[in-house]
């Protein structure tokens, strides 16, 4: 027996479904939309790790808070550890912490210049030759070819008529 014999009327009615059509022009636009989605998904796949991270955090704020607390905790632990190491090395931790790092900066009034500066600026007379308001010229240089001699040349101008 043919399987369709008993369902002839039903199959005629089902033919109605073949006449259901999407809006005009729909199939002209669909491929473009699909290709746009493909290109967008490819771009998303190529995005940086930072974008990936931000997207995850946007989706899960609790995860973002957990990461924040973890990183803050690690920073605090690292700082405490560095303090402990300094204390072990003989540096008074209260001078650098609480008393402030600014307090550890040398006082410009009482501080002594270094040995290098002292050796270079010990002779004030020598410093006078480096005055900024007087020309730095050795006036005693008399031999030909000296720097001073070569700098000053007599010049005579004549006006042609």
């Amino acid at each position: 027996m043919n399987e369709n014999e008993n369902f002839e009327s039903l199959q005629k009615l089902l033919a109605l479904k073949r006449h259901e059509e999407p809006p005009p022009g729909y199939f002209n636009r669909l491929p473009g939309k699909i290709l746009e989605r493909i290109e967008a998904s490819e771009l998303a796949a190529e995005s940086s790790w930072w974008t990936w991270l931000v997207e995850r955090f946007d989706a899960r704020p609790i995860l973002a808070c957990a990461y924040g607390f973890t990183i803050s905790g690690l920073l605090l632990m690292g700082f405490r550890l560095s303090q402990a190491l300094e204390a072990d090395a003989g540096v008074d931790p209260t001078q650098n912490f609480g008393g402030g790092w600014l307090a550890a900066t040398p006082d410009p009034v009482t501080a002594q210049p270094s040995a290098f500066l002292q050796s270079h600026f010990a002779n004030p007379a020598g410093l006078a030759t480096f005055s900024s308001v007087e020309p730095v010229v050795d006036l005693n240089a008399s031999h030909a070819g000296s720097r001073a001699g070569s700098m000053f040349q007599p010049v005579a101008y004549s006006i042609a008529k």
Binding site: K12, A15, L16, H19, E20
Partner: peptide
């Protein structure tokens, strides 16, 4: 979706 114009002339229907 809307039925197309041919639905009214489909002999089965």
């Amino acid at each position: 979706n809307d039925l197309d114009f041919n639905a009214e002339h489909d002999p089965d229907l």
